[in-house]
């Protein structure tokens, strides 16, 4: 990893947990509209409230839920839903190892729950902290708890309010989730060496999204193409 952390100094403190909690609230709020939308979709597909809560507690990956729900039928399309979850969430398999300097040094129980709630925004903030030399793995746990709870609650609110809310799909409130992902790119920028890999990632993602509409291979394809470009550039130095 490119952080200055040495593995032996990794800790998991209460102070770190609270620092994470205090940094998580803007994200928990920003993801609210996204959760709301997922809840509304779940209701519109005729699923029960229990289904809604279980889905968001245990899958906890909104994009994959939306893709699977788009093609939901009764009885449920079990294999198609599993495939959607797998393809959309494959990026999580690439994200986990980046946190290894922290996760390798905490207890198995802490590690299990850290990976169980692995999602993009908290991961990005944790990586940013790690790159600045952060050594407190509890920071990531503190980020994750409010995000997970906020997600389960906002999707449930969406489910319950679905019949009364009537927001058009292009309502600016729904931009909040995308805005948070865009804003998180700023602290991830390390300098000019990021330019080419980022351009390749965006370009490849755009092309794959055009070639395979309705699937989510574009995320994995763009991320791998960009990262391989970066690694090749480093190799040539």
């Amino acid at each position: 990893m490119d952080s200055a952390t040495t593995a032996s100094t990794i800790k998991f403190t209460r102070a770190g947990f609270w620092r994470g909690m205090s940094r998580a609230w803007p994200l928990a709020i920003a993801l609210g509209p996204f959760g709301l939308v997922v809840g509304i979709i779940i209701q519109s597909k005729g699923l029960t409230m229990v289904d809604c809560v279980l889905m968001n507690m245990f899958i906890y990956a909104g994009a994959s839920e939306i893709v699977a729900l788009a093609n939901w039928t009764h009885p449920a399309p079990i294999l198609a839903a599993i495939l959607a979850a797998f393809v959309v969430n494959m990026r999580l398999a690439l994200m986990g190892p980046v946190l290894n300097p922290w996760l390798a040094k905490i207890t198995p129980v802490q590690r299990f729950f850290s990976l169980f709630v692995l999602v993009d925004p908290s991961w990005a903030l944790a990586v940013t902290d790690m790159r600045k030399g952060g050594t407190d793995a509890a920071f990531y746990a503190g980020l994750s708890v409010p995000l997970w709870a906020g997600w389960v609650i906002s999707s449930l609110v969406g489910y319950l309010a679905a019949s009364r809310l009537n927001l058009p799909p292009d309502h600016p409130l729904f931009f909040a989730a995308l805005a948070s992902f865009i804003a998180l790119l700023v602290p991830l920028w390390r300098g000019r060496s990021d330019a080419l890999p980022w351009l390749v990632a965006g370009g490849v993602a755009l092309s794959v999204a055009r070639i395979l509409p309705g699937s989510s291979w574009y995320i994995v394809a763009g991320a791998l193409a960009g990262s391989i470009t970066g690694a090749i550039a480093e190799h040539r130095k």
């Binding site: 990893m1 490119d2 690439l94 993009d120 995308l178 991830l188 920028w189 193409a225 970066g230």
Partner: peptide, 22 residues
């Protein structure tokens, strides 16, 4: 090589996610 790849992943994942949506 893999370590370098992983170090580029955070930014590239977000770029890949954000660009088509934008």
């Amino acid at each position: 090589f893999i370590r370098h790849m992983l170090s580029y992943l955070p930014g590239t994942i977000f770029m890949a996610f954000v660009t088509p949506a934008l």
